[in-house]
Amino acid sequence: MRAEALKGHLDGLLLAALEEGPLHGYAVKEALCAATGGRIDLPTGTVYPALHRLERAGLIAGSWSVVAGRRRRTYRLTEAGGRALSGERAGWQEFAAAVTTALGARPWPTTS
């Protein structure tokens, strides 16, 4: 799936990836890829700035640790992030239901 198709939905997807527990940047990308059956596989390097933006917005919180001699930044969902995720879910379900209804197969009108 192309990155442009995710416009407006990336935040919700990243928040959902962190719902199960704290993850570092690469693991967030892997979780997103696994959760979508590989259909959403973003260039990993582009996930970090999106995570930083969510952190600035207070939706996730990051903390540094040392793993295998390397500094690692791990992110967790905040309370505000949990509420934002619920809102994203509700909005998406409403949107998806409306589009599904509009695009649903209809019988061709008879001409005779």
């Binding site: 570092h24 940047g25 690469y26 990308k29 990993t44 390097g45 970090y48 700035p49 930083h52 793993v67 390397r70 500094r71 690692r72 930044r73």
Partner: peptide, 14 residues
Amino acid sequence: PQAVEEIADGLHET
């Protein structure tokens, strides 16, 4: 630098 450090960890893991 902090962004590069974070990317380095992920790139190393990949």
